[in-house]
Amino acid sequence: MSALTNSLGSFIKSSIGRKIIVAVTGLALVLFLAGHLTGNLLIYAGQEAFDEYAHFLHTFLHGTGVWIARLGLLVCFGAHLWFTILLTRENKAARKGYAHQATVQAPKSSLIMIWSGLTILAFVIFHLLHFTVRTDAELAKIGAESPWKMVIIGFQNPLVSLFYIIAMTLLCSHLAHGVASIFQTLGLRSNRTAGPIRIFAKAYAAVIYFGFISIPLAILFGYGSDAVK
């Protein structure tokens, strides 16, 4: 037992161990995003289908399903946040900058991971208060009746939509580097697979990006407006 806890302890303290935790939790969040997007796109299937889907989520396993998922996501998100901040601080402390700075091939997205990540954090807090906790009493009343209507009305506010689109842009940047990084960190990348992995990561980021932003854009351009009058 002590051998197990010892090696687990040194794994969590090691640079590679921490990176692997970041990659695994990142992977879980990446998979969650794919599922979340698929569900969200049901908005285009109309009020009934979307409300039914929302109802299904909340009643799955007699209502415990959604809580199991929330707990899992919270653990992954928390661990990802904790270890990325830790790693970033260590990295900043590991060296002094050059008077003449230069970068050879590191993509821009890889240089702003902490900033894209923190934007996602700010967005997630806002997003949960907005659509899950529903701090706006009026929106909460509409949400209880029809989540579909709540989303339409929520995004009819241009400021909400703008923040959403900005956050998704940074999420896209985070994923363009992050998804490719998962393969390298978990030891699954080689010279032969490097090209395809890079393309896959960019394609995944693009699908997530356009999928998510299509919703506020469609609503701003009038989708569903006749139904919520």
Binding site: S15, R18, K19, L87, E90, N91, A93, A94, R95, T103, V104, Q105, A106, P107, S110, L111, M113, H177, A180, S181, F183, Q184, T185, G187, L188, R189, S190, N191, A194
Partner: peptide
């Protein structure tokens, strides 16, 4: 030393062109 963030600046400057696949 700091932690790798998979930016591959190392392999770009390596005089012996060691590939980052060794890091994987």
């Amino acid at each position: 030393f700091g932690n790798c963030t998979n930016q591959f600046e190392c392999e770009a400057v390596c005089p012996k062109e060691i590939s980052a696949q060794h890091i994987a």
